[in-house]
């Protein structure tokens, strides 16, 4: 039986009818067309599906859409500002932190959540904050550099 849920995604309110066995990830990707949130493993091991729910980064593949009822969700599509790329996105572009790009949305959201809690993190804090987001291309170094760079620009 479908249930009607209301949630805010990237500042916009959605009212959708969802079956209980639909994950938030599949709701975003396949029902709402927000395909920037990626599916890399579907069981919480890779972090490609990271979204920020009520201020906290989570694996959206482990959250039921019905559990997201009433919550505030930020996906990668909501990170850009009116002036264009968010400083973290800009830093990812400039520092070469993007290769295949599949981990990038999740990385950026984990980084954004970190910088909101801790505007001037140490390298160790950055690495810890990103440790649930796997990347197979970059060796993480340029991602860490991008987050450092963004933290300097933001603060």
């Amino acid at each position: 039986m479908k249930r009607l849920i209301t949630l805010t995604i990237n500042g916009k309110e959605y009212e959708v009818a969802v079956p209980p066995n639909l994950t938030l990830l599949d709701l975003l990707r396949y029902e709402l067309g927000l395909t920037g949130t990626k599916k890399g493993c579907d069981v919480g091991d890779c972090g490609a599906c990271t979204v920020i729910m009520d201020g906290k980064p989570v694996n959206s593949c482990l959250v039921l859409a019905v559990q997201a009822d009433g919550r505030d969700i930020l996906t990668i599509e909501g990170v850009e500002t009116e002036e264009g790329l968010h400083p973290i996105q800009q830093a990812f572009v400039e520092k070469g932190a993007v290769q295949c790009g599949f981990c990038t949305p999740g990385m950026i959201l984990s980084a954004k959540s970190l910088l909101e809690r801790n505007p001037r993190p140490t390298e160790e804090e950055i690495r810890t904050a990103l440790s649930g987001n796997l990347c197979r291309c970059t060796g993480y170094q340029k991602i860490v550099e991008a987050v450092k760079d963004a933290s300097e620009k933001l603060s």
Binding site: G44, V58, N59, S131
Partner: peptide, 9 residues
């Protein structure tokens, strides 16, 4: 435990 993302759930 797990990862920062897991710890939030």
């Amino acid at each position: 435990l797990g990862s920062p993302l897991i710890r939030n759930l």
